[in-house]
Every structure is written in C-alpha cells, then in structure tokens.
Design a protein around this nucleic acid. Structure first.
Lengths: 358, 358
DNA sequence: CCTTCGGCTGCATTCGGAGTCAAAGCTAAA
DNA sequence: TTTAGCTTTGACTCCGAATGCAGCCGAAGG
C-alpha cells in the first residue's frame, strides 16, 4: 500500500519540483530529512544538532530544534546503530529472574540512568544458553551481563565478536573474563563457623540448589569443605531447585534418610531455607531454633520478614550491580581494558533461626 | 579463529576479483556480503536464504549455508530492522518489577518462544513514564506492553506512531485501547462478601497501595463500595506503598487511629497483607484469624507459604500473560485489529487468615 | 528446433542517520 | 582592502540486509 501511495504522489506532484519528494505515509515517523526540509537546512545539520559537541551555530540549532518540536522528530536508534555500530543496548542474561528480581531491577535502573536500554534474556534453565546467544549476536548489543553459566567456548565467542561480557555471580578461575561475585565460599565458611563454633553443632544437613547452578555448587562445596576442615563428619546431603517447595521436600528427605533431625540445616539459598523452616514448624512440628538451626544464603527480602528472621549471608546487591554496570560500560568505551574480577564479601545477617549456646 | 578463516579465504581468492575489497577490521562480524563473496553468489541470494519461503534453489541454499557455517555469519538485526521497519523487539514497561517478577518472566518467555526480544523499561514510580517513552520511540519497538499508567495524551502518541499497545492490569473505560486485566473490583467484592456474609465481620480496615497506582485505587474502591453496599459503616482507611514494611506501618496506624483492632483488614496486595500479619502476630500480639481476619490480593507465591496461608484473590498470571502477548502480536501483524479489552476473574484462594463463623 | 512459462539469480536501490571533506562564511589582523 | 585562520555548512558516501525488477536458464510443449 505504501508503494501505491508513493507512486501516486510522484504522479501528482510531478518529478521536477522536489529532488526527492518521497511520500511519507501518514503514520510514518518524521526523519532527519523531514526536519531538514522543514527547517530549510541539510540533513547533516540536523544530525549534528543531536550530537553532543557537534559543530553547529546557535542560530542553526534553534532553527532546527523548532522544526524538531513541531514535527515531533526523534532520532531513529536503529538507523543510528547501523552506522555507528552502537546499539545503546546491553543484554542481560538471567536464569532465575523470578527468584532474584532485585538484581535485574537494579541493573536496569542503573543502565537507564545512562540512557542504555536492557534487552532481556530470561532462561528456563541455565543450560539453555545456546539459543539465546544467537539472539544476542543478531541484536548487536554493546555488551552483556550474564547471570548464567556459559561454557568456555561460548565465552570465547564474545571475545571473537568483541562484545564485552561481565558475569554476575559466576566466576571462572581459569578463564580471563570479567566478573562481579559475592564470595560464596567465604560466606558459607562464616556460616559454618557460626554454627560449629558459636552454636556447637556437630550434625548437619546441606541442601543444595539445582545441579546446573555453579553458584549452588560453590556454596555447598564451601560449606561442606569447611565442615570437614573442622572435623565434622555427620553431614547429610540433599538437593533442591532453589524453590520454596523443593526446600520443603528436601527437608523431608533429610529426615527420612537420617531418621532424626540434624542439629543444623544449611540451605543454598533463602527461598529453600524458608521452605525448610515452614515444613519443620508446620508439618514436622520441629522447633526452630530450639531443636534445629536453619540458615540460608542471599539476604533476600523475605528472609527478613518477622515470621522467618532467617540467619543468612546478605549479598551486597546494590554494590554488585553498580560494579557490574560500571565494569561493562568501561569495557564498552575502551575495549582494551583487561578482564577484571571483583569479589564482594557477603555480610552475616543475625536472625533467630540459629540457637546460640550460651 | 573464525576471523582468521575468513581472511585466509580472502587471501586465497585474491584481491583482484572482488570489486569492493573494503577492509574488514579483524574483529568485525561477517556480513551477508562476506558470505556472498565466499560462496561466489550475490548478496541478495544470501539474504533470500534467510527469508522463510524465499525463492532459492536447493543447491544454492546448501552452498550459502556452508559458507554461513564456516564464517559464523548471523544476520544483523539492526540492518534488517532498518529496511523492514520491524525491530522484532517489544517494549515492556513495568513499574513494580521487584514485586511482580512473575509477570515479566512469563511475558519474556512467551515472546522469546516467538523469537521476539523484550526491551525492558523499569520505572521507579508510575509517574516517571515520560522519559521512558522517548526511549521507546527511539528504539522502534514493534509494540509495547504497559504495566504502568499512561495518560490519554501518551496513549494517543502510540496511535500516532502506529505502535500497538496493550495494557496489563490497567484499564481505561473511556479510551479505546487494548488491555488485559484482572477484575479488581469483582475480586474485592468476593472478598468482602466472604468477610461479611460468611465471617460476619462488621468493622473493617482497608489498607490501600500507592496513590499513583490505579490498580490500588480500583481495589480499595471496590472493597469500600461493596462494604457500603452491604451497610457496613465502620471502615478505617490507611495507605501504604505495596511493600511489606508499609503494611506493618499501616496496621500500626490503624490500631492507633481506632484504638482497637477491627474485625477484618483488607489489603490492596499480598505483600502488605503479609506485613500486616507479621506485625499483628509478632509485635502487637494479636491472633490471626482469632482476633482479626486479614486478606490480600494477587495470589503471590509467598501468600501460599505455610507461615501465612493467606486468603487472597489469585490473578491468573499465566492466562493474562498469554492473552497480552497474543493480543500484542496480533496487532503487530495486523494493525487494523480494533482495540479489545479482556478481563479475567480472579479466583478466591482459601487460606487460614479468615475466621469463618461456624 | 523454437517457443513459452516458470523458477532462480543478480543488479540496483532503499531504509535513516553519521561522518568526511571541501566549500563557504566570518572575524581579525596586516 | 586583502588575507590568514577559524567556524559553520552541505554534498556525498557508508553502514548491512531486503526487495522490485529484469534477465537468465531449463524444462515442457508445439
């Protein structure tokens, strides 16, 4: 239909008058050419008015801006992106959006402040990355923040495509790649020390997260490693999938397999810890912290709710998000910046789910 | 390594043959021209190979695809978008991301299935829309799902720009615009009927959400309207901001202002209801449901946790997300589709925070 | 053997803004 | 008044993929 319209207008207007009198179909946004024609200047001039520090006289700028206002012109980010090779979009790959909304929210806000848009890639499982990466390449994002596990080959692709990549809470020891992490192992060690040294516990259950989550592996490995280092041998291990329900189920299995309640239950995240708490209190009728201590990891909102008041490790989400954003933007502006790994310590949150021996 | 391959092949083929031997800087992604040259065909042919139903012979397709594999070519979505005027991106404007992650998660997943990317716009307050809209126009999204309030003028801009718009949980009675909603008023009526008719309550507190949230207004108006229709006059009103803490504070104010506990407290969302529950039980030492009934709205995950087991209205998030996505895509494919408003009923969730008189 | 028809293919153009370059305008000094 | 030196401006090209059109080729039919 556009074509029909176009040829009609050519017919009506005749060829001679305007050099390029393409018909702008009514619903089409005005382009820089439209503004230029309206203001009686060249397209380059319009473009320069939108470039910070562009060489334009005051008079020209005013004149152009008046037409811009009048026509409601907005520069077309797609066209700009094509020529500048900058889309002003970053990709955020996240696999547990529903459990960790704060992270995305913080990231998106900080990018928005800098006029950068977030293209969202939400994974069902961390293992689904492959299809998603294809989309990432196609959309020419300027950089990517990955809160999901990539394999070394995939990371290498980022280097080849020259797209900056910053991991959020995933670290790779052997690969030179930027990351912002909360020190999972250290956090678990703090927790174990508390449980063993201050609470005097000697029998444990460790409830891990999904097997494709490296963070979960690090947390459970950290906890178990420290327990063993302290000479604790009574450790029951069960896994969940980070969800509340899986925490409830896991604690049942713990009870079944060991026949009695351990002195402490260490969960790979808060959500499962909350499930464990509820199952213990409301289904198994076991008192926390009277009969068993329960701890989590994350420092999520709900951990602080009065019903739970969970002992956990708080990840400094704000600082981590800020770090991730500034690292990524730094690498977008200067692709010579070397990979950098930043690790934040989690903070032990006091709560009432651990029985401290007095 | 891919790049190495590419330049090698160029080297082998020699310079003379290609008319436009522009230097492809090493880290630059291969373009359709590179593929064309490598396969010894025209750029149009490459392009056609990526168009479903494109007119290409089997032999040609195989040949091109071999080069595509070898060079690691991926069509550039930006360039494509410029010429097709389709970015294959939709904008999602959301203001309460941290409270309602499921919605975004569901939307994003369903769009991803259809190979459409989500450009995220997260607002601090619903009132911040203006700046965000500018970004929306610039990025040439194909459509927008708005879980935030827009004013009529802003809605009109979507029409002018010919960008399909579907509201999620915001409705406008007088303006012809598409929306998917949960019937807030009906939900509250169900709740009030339960509290008045089955529980026999006659004194109420209503805790509303932030004043710039229309959904909150609809909910509180629905509740209060029904209460008055049933002849209830003892209604205390306080407002929060949807957060847990604001729920706790609000219930304190309720107690202060009326001096005693009402028979039931109706909250504009689950999060505040949970705050109310915790404050009542752990700070004010008031039994729920023994001394007061508490109800929420949303049907969020945490409402179902055993510690709360909240009576609430469950919004059919899956159906609503699916509806929103298909409505939007429908209007993107066919801009003649008229506005459509779809309303889903919420489902009353039984729980243990209401004392039913036997 | 020639024509016709349909399927493939390549050429050239298009999308909208950015940047290069040379020309034009302006100011100030000679 | 002239000229050097600077700022401002416009013409033109480019980014990378999609597509209308014309030409080409092969198969089938006369």
């Amino acid at each position: 239909m556009q074509t029909t319209l176009a040829s009609q207008s050519v017919l009506v207007l005749g060829w001679c008058m305007a050099d390029k009198e393409r018909d702008r179909s009514p619903k089409r946004l005005p382009t820089s050419y439209d503004v230029a024609r309206h203001a009686g200047v060249s397209q380059s001039a319009v473009s320069r008015c939108f470039k910070p520090g562009g060489s334009v006289s005051k008079k020209m700028r005013e004149r152009v801006m008046r037409s811009v206002e009048l026509l409601g012109y907005r520069p077309n980010a797609i066209a700009r992106g094509l020529i500048t090779r900058r889309s002003n979009m970053v990709g955020v790959i996240e696999s547990n959006l529903r459990y960790y909304p704060e992270v995305l929210s913080e990231l998106s806000r900080r990018f928005a402040e800098r006029n950068i848009q977030v293209l969202l890639f939400d994974l069902d499982h961390e293992s689904d990355v492959t299809q998603v990466l294809d989309q990432v390449w196609q959309h020419q994002v300027d950089g990517v923040i990955a809160a999901a596990q990539l394999d070394p080959q995939q990371i290498e692709q980022f280097a080849q495509h020259n797209i900056p990549l910053v991991f959020y809470n995933r670290s790779y020891q052997d690969i030179p790649v930027s990351s912002v992490c909360c020190d999972q192992g250290e956090g678990e060690r703090k927790i174990v020390d508390l449980l063993v040294e201050h609470a005097g516990h000697r029998s444990f259950a460790v409830i891990g997260g999904p097997s494709d989550s490296v963070v979960s592996l690090q947390r459970t490995a950290g906890a178990i490693g420290r327990l063993e280092a302290l000479g604790v041998t009574d450790i029951t291990r069960e896994d969940g999938d980070y969800s509340y329900d899986s925490g409830r189920r896991a604690v049942r299995r713990v009870m079944q397999s060991r026949g009695s309640v351990p002195e402490a239950i260490i969960c790979a995240n808060d959500m499962m810890a909350i499930g464990v708490l509820d199952e213990l209190r409301f289904r198994l009728d076991i008192d926390v912290p009277g009969e068993v201590s329960v701890v989590g990891f994350d420092g999520s909102r709900s951990a602080q709710w009065l019903s739970y008041d969970l002992v956990t490790i708080e990840q400094p989400v704000m600082s981590m998000a800020e770090a991730a954003v500034s690292m990524l933007l730094g690498r977008i502006d200067n692709d010579a910046l070397p990979p950098e790994k930043r690790t934040f310590s989690g903070v032990l949150r006091a709560g009432s789910t651990v029985r401290l021996s007095s």
